[in-house]
Design a protein around this nucleic acid. Sequence first.
DNA 1: AGTTAAATTCAACAGCTGTTGAAAATCAAG
DNA 2: CTTGATTTTCAACAGCTGTTGAATTTAACT
Lengths: 214, 214
Amino acid sequence: MPDSEQSPSKKERILDAAEELFALHGYDGVTLRQIAQQAEVDVALASYHFGKKRDVFEATFLRRAQIINDLRLKSLQQMQATQGDSLSVEDIVTAFLKPIQALQMNANPGWQNYCALVAYINSSAVWGKELMHRNFDPLVNRYMTALRQALPNATPEKLHWCYHYLSGALTLTMANTGRIDRLSEGRCHSDDFQTAYDLMIPFVTQGMLAVCGD
Amino acid sequence: MPDSEQSPSKKERILDAAEELFALHGYDGVTLRQIAQQAEVDVALASYHFGKKRDVFEATFLRRAQIINDLRLKSLQQMQATQGDSLSVEDIVTAFLKPIQALQMNANPGWQNYCALVAYINSSAVWGKELMHRNFDPLVNRYMTALRQALPNATPEKLHWCYHYLSGALTLTMANTGRIDRLSEGRCHSDDFQTAYDLMIPFVTQGMLAVCGD
DNA sequence: AGTTAAATTCAACAGCTGTTGAAAATCAAG
DNA sequence: CTTGATTTTCAACAGCTGTTGAATTTAACT
């Protein structure tokens, strides 16, 4: 049963609605009834398909997580194929950020909502971080390995803190909160992902070299 | 009526409890009854003192906002007094980050909770950002002015994006989520603010110079 | 068409939510 | 102590919450 060119099933509509609402208001700021209403579906259907409310949230998170991981893995491998086996810091940072930039510039609004959802989970202090650890950290460790090779004199501690800063800048950008629009009085736009990521690459690259370089 | 060396009033206990719980679970993840229970106070007292639930949240946010602004303003002025009128990028970044580092390393746990609360608001996509704009952006603009002088060839757009990256790295650090502990398998600690901010300064400084330097 | 399973809705539940008006307690001042 | 104001509690409200079991519709297959 091909699902291309086909209106999304009710099950998928529930995840679409959950994706948007959870990203905007967080886990506790959304009710199953709001999700059902936006998906034009009965309240009980979410429980039937996914179980408890937390399972709805997890299903929303898991639906696209593997796709992002695959894109980022391919991005790193392709960079290694074209640039040789020893990558520069800029190569690694570029490989890490470009897939996210492409997703957020995508016409499909689902990916924008999903990126904001991941940002919400990443900056959440409670149970959400366990989801991040299980689903994203294995891939992040591949990038950490590449960084260790590009910066052989750096301590693991410094490398992790540098990734932490990258993660923070990336998270706030993915969250797409509109803060920069206000602060810059309209000169910058939260959804100008072209500029956001193109400038983030040299920023993070030189930051890492400053902290971890020889 | 002096309030030093005096056990905190019930009104203050409510704000202390709200500070901790809102920082941990977000606005919708906390009920007035939970706040009242932690403050060992009746439910209705929060409404009596502050009004609606949103007013409790705003009061929690406003209680310490001006103190942070004053500290940061003094920090910038002191840097200008000692370093002369033309500050380096590193001076400005240092003046911006050091007060927060001091607050989070403070023995008073209230400030740690408050820093996490500010991080929550800053990465929230909804009404919270208005609070940030009104209470923090005036001070941030003073720092932006200093940065414009230190980087005269940078466009305002690039400068704002650089501050955005700084803000992201800072927000994730203030949030103190424990993510870095997991990813680094115990090598780094979210609450090692000494290392966190000492490394953030060169990271952000060189990032800004790379994007906005000549 | 008939049968079986899956998908979807309906109806209802016990429990919790923010909020408020009245009662009670505490405090300040004469 | 009496008075009046402020603070704190009590009790209750209407409305919303997640969840579930039964009923109904839709789909799949013979």
